Amino acid sequence: MCRSIKTLRPPFTESVSEEDMRAAALQYVRKISGFRAPAPHNAEAFERAVAAVTAATADLLATLEVRGAAKR
């Protein structure tokens, strides 16, 4: 689907920044909306979607348990 989105969980990535999560969210929203950059009348909805996906990503990564990985 989104080939430029990299895996953000251990062991693939040791540390993940807010910027990494937002970049992945932006790529996802771009892909599903079909817009690289939204028109001005859609900008607020686009940014809300990016923020929601970023928050969901942070929640997911904070609660995933990876077998054999050291606890943080």
Results as ranks from 00 to 15, higher is better:
S4H: 07
E18T: 11
V50H: 03
H41G: 02
T57Y: 12
G34A: 06
S15H: 14
A62M: 14
T7Q: 07
T54N: 08
K31W: 15
K31Y: 15
M21S: 01
P11N: 01
D20R: 07
S17F: 04
A70F: 08
A55T: 13
R72T: 13
T54P: 01
A45C: 03
A43I: 06
V66S: 01
S33V: 10
S33T: 12
V29K: 03
M1E: 13
A37S: 06
L8N: 02
A39S: 12
R22D: 00
T7E: 12
V53Q: 08
P11Q: 00
I5E: 12
R22S: 03
E65Y: 14
E18S: 15
A62C: 09
P11T: 09
F46S: 05
I32M: 12
M1V: 11
T54Y: 01
A43L: 05
A52W: 05
R72E: 10
K31C: 11
D59M: 07
R22V: 07
E18M: 08
R36W: 09
R9F: 15
E18N: 12
L61V: 13
I32Q: 06
E18F: 13
G68I: 13
A49F: 06
K6Q: 09
R48A: 03
H41S: 13
E44A: 07
A23N: 05
A69Y: 09
M1C: 07
K71N: 09
N42D: 11
I32P: 02
T7D: 15
A45V: 11
A52Q: 06
T13N: 02
H41M: 07
E19D: 09
A37G: 02
E44K: 01
A51K: 02
P10E: 08
T63Q: 15
C2M: 14
